[in-house]
Amino acid sequence: MHRFANPARFQRLASIILPWSDVLTAGLLVSGLYFALFASPADYQQGETVRIMYIHVPAAWMAMFSYSVMAAASAASLIWKHPLADVAARAAAPIGAGFTAIALITGMLWGEPMWGTWWVWDARLTSVLILFFLYLGYMALVNAIDNPAAAVRAGAILALVGFVNIPIIKFSVDWWNTLHQPASVIKMGGPSIAPSMLLPLVLMALGFHFYFVSVLLRRMRSELDLARVRALEDAIALNSEEAAA
């Protein structure tokens, strides 16, 4: 019964946090969109396409942030065998994969008008693509294992292995990119962020973080509910078997 104690407290905590994070998500994203689409100037170099950056850059940040959350939860799940950590790692994966997909799609949509091609093997886009494959591998593995406890442990190991490998993969891809430097590309995002870009970027990034919290809590809730549904179904099956015998 101790197993249920923490999730029960979590359910109460979640119902307190969720209304706040929902409101903050909506507020931040609406004001972020206002600044991203209306109240900011076009870039002197990129023109109106700079507005794609307000989605692309925060999404790319979130792709990495979600993987870090997944890895941290996986570490907690392996070390302390905390049932909430198990659920959190599993719930974070599809959200992170979603943000990664957005970063890829918007990167391509920005590349076509700016680079004149849908795909450039630039270090950043390539790293994000590999991150996307890491998410897909995690989700495929967790879904392939029927026993929920075994699935969580296998997923946790894979998430941690992926996490320690990300810096090496990133380094190798950056380095590969300098070997094959394409003729002339505008650095994407880059260090030179104009002040007018900062406000929409920050608002969108914060909005995405609260979106992550809201969806993560909802997904964790349903995972916990489903675990109890399974336990109850097993108990009922057991009872009817006993009654029959």
Binding site: F133, G137, A140, L141, A144, V161, S172
Partner: peptide, 30 residues
């Protein structure tokens, strides 16, 4: 790592390549 995680699963082959190939990228590049 992939082989140990996928041990005992049906259709482990395709899953294995998805798990392992992204991790092979640094070796390939260098």
């Amino acid at each position: 790592i992939g082989a140990a995680l996928a041990v005992g699963l049906r259709r482990a082959g395709a899953l294995l390549s998805l798990l392992v190939l992204p991790l092979y990228i640094p070796a390939l590049i260098f």
